[in-house]
Design a binder for these strands. Structure first.
Length: 207
DNA sequence: AAATCGATTGCT
DNA sequence: GCAATCGATTTG
């Protein structure tokens, strides 16, 4: 069977909300120096150019410039000074839309993910986790996901997702039961149903 | 130049 | 409920 890395055309074939839904069930893969880690995408959020919650809404700045790139570009940003969030840029070059990847069902490199999640950000230095993390919490939430996957702004921001290092593989299963909801953690555009998740997945960050 | 804020997380 | 932490953005 052929390698199933999504081509860049996949990211421009759909509007951003459709892409957010289509990415569910696909496998995000990072082939890092530490080893390969991957997981099935179970939760996403769409951010549109006419949407006040979107970083690129009426703003084309240093930070948001990757969002204006070609579909299939990565946008990794720092949030609250300590977590990174991974997005896939969508729509046409110059528009400024993206899909936030919010949670994964871990597949490959689970031990590597557990190692990466050992240090707890925000505590006084060298603070380590005492209790073991549940598998269902490893890649739950955008900050935890990026951390577990070893995705860093300094390395992966504004790169194309068709490389052999960081990419997404096509959905292996059909007929996913997809649910929609309001997005999490925003203060504007709060009523838009732009969050998508696999119904009943224990790996999604919230019901 | 200084203040403000955040698409989060984990502990109290 | 709220502190941690920092770069991008705004001038609060």
């Amino acid at each position: 069977m052929p390698e199933s890395i999504l081509p860049l055309s996949f990211y421009s074939d759909y509007d951003t909300r459709t892409l957010a839904e289509k990415l569910l069930g696909c496998e995000l893969v990072h082939e890092s120096p530490d080893g390969i880690t991957s997981g099935i995408i179970v939760e996403t959020e769409a951010y549109l150019s006419d949407d006040p919650a979107c970083h690129a809404y009426n703003r084309r700045t240093t930070r948001t410039e990757p969002m204006y790139g070609v579909a299939g570009t990565s946008y990794v940003y720092l949030i609250y000074g300590m977590y990174e969030c991974f997005n896939v840029v969508s729509n046409k070059e110059g528009i400024g839309e993206a899909v936030l990847i919010r949670a994964l069902q871990p597949v490959q490199g689970i031990e590597i993910m557990e190692m990466r999640r050992q240090l707890i950000p925000g505590r006084s230095a060298e603070k380590l986790r005492t209790k073991p993390l549940k598998l269902s919490d490893l890649c739950k939430g955008p900050g935890n996901l990026a951390r577990a996957m070893g995705i860093q702004r300094s390395v992966h921001n504004n790169t194309l997702l068709n490389t052999k290092t960081l990419y997404i593989k096509e959905r292996a299963v059909q007929n996913l039961d997809v649910a929609t909801s309001k997005r999490i953690g925003i203060n504007v555009g709060v009523d838009l149903l732009y969050r998508f998740y696999i119904k009943d997945s224990i790996f999604a960050s919230k019901l």
